[in-house]
């Protein structure tokens, strides 16, 4: 992407509160996500990490009981403004889910699907190039180059997850949200995805929810700690690792570390 200037704000949430029906899930969360960085979100389960992540590409719009207050801006534009094109937001802010969810179609078609949808005219050599490049970018090409016509569901879990990343890269988003992308994967596949995210950071802004603290500290530039719907602490990963400002953060991290 073009906005490679470091320090530029990509996403910004201000006083974000959310409810499922009457149950609060987020309480006044404010956070600034800089462009071309990896932001890791940690915290015990049920504390609102997924909810927050799904606010960023308006995925929660699918849930009827969901209510939101506050403001989220993408490149300074309010993504919940009434005249917003939700489809365009989701095109810019793509998402990878906890369970790898390739479509029940071939590996090639999985990657080509979004491209064909966004650009009806594209086909032949051009489409092939996009697919191959996206698979290469996702570090999956070598493993699937002979399996392009096979069903995406026939790949291993880790390959499926990288396929999901590849199909997202193919539509050239600006932000990539990942919700516990490695929780269903073995350590080797996890390592591959971590490497991949570090590479992708050069061109994308990445927000990743993880329950794996080691992973969070290995790959994140910034870390946010959620507890009971609140963003208790947010800061550079290096600082949080050494001396967190809040005691609960320290307890949580040390509790997990040892």
């Amino acid at each position: 992407m073009l906005n490679t200037v470091n320090g530029k704000t990509k996403l910004h949430a201000r006083e974000l509160s959310a409810w499922y029906g009457r149950t609060p899930a987020l309480k006044k969360v404010s956070v600034t996500i800089p462009a071309n960085s990896i932001v890791g979100l940690i915290g015990p389960s049920g504390c609102g990490k997924s909810t927050f992540l799904r606010c960023l590409n308006r995925m929660n719009d699918l849930i009827r009981s969901f209510k939101l207050e506050g403001k989220i801006t993408l490149d300074e534009k309010d993504i919940y403004a009434p005249d917003t094109d939700i489809v365009l937001i989701r095109r810019k802010v793509g998402m990878v889910f906890q369970q790898p969810n390739p479509f029940p179609m071939s590996v090639f078609d999985n990657v080509a699907f979004g491209v064909r949808e966004h650009n009806r005219g594209v086909n032949g050599k051009k489409l092939e190039n996009i697919v191959v490049n996206s698979l290469k970018q996702a570090n999956l090409w070598d493993e699937v180059k002979d399996k392009l016509p096979q069903s995406g569901l026939s790949l291993s879990g880790g390959q499926q997850q990288r396929l999901c990343i590849a199909r997202l890269l193919a539509v050239k988003p600006e932000v990539i949200l990942l919700d516990e992308p490695c929780s269903a994967l073995d350590p080797l596949s996890t390592g591959k995805i971590e490497e991949l995210l570090l590479e992708l950071k050069k061109s994308y802004t990445i927000v990743v929810v993880t329950h794996n603290l080691g992973q969070a500290f290995r790959i994140s530039d910034y870390i946010g700690f959620f507890l009971l719907g609140q963003l208790v602490e947010f800061g550079p990963a290096a600082e949080l690792a050494v001396k967190p400002k809040e005691k609960v953060t320290a307890d949580y991290i040390s509790g997990h570390f040892g």
């Binding site: 989701r90 793509g94 949808e117 997202l168």
Partner: peptide
């Protein structure tokens, strides 16, 4: 039809109708 397929497609910026 598994909900994850639908979500996966929407998350690529494909419209609900498509």
């Amino acid at each position: 039809v598994p909900k994850v397929y639908k979500e996966g497609s929407l998350a690529l910026g494909v419209s609900h109708w498509r």
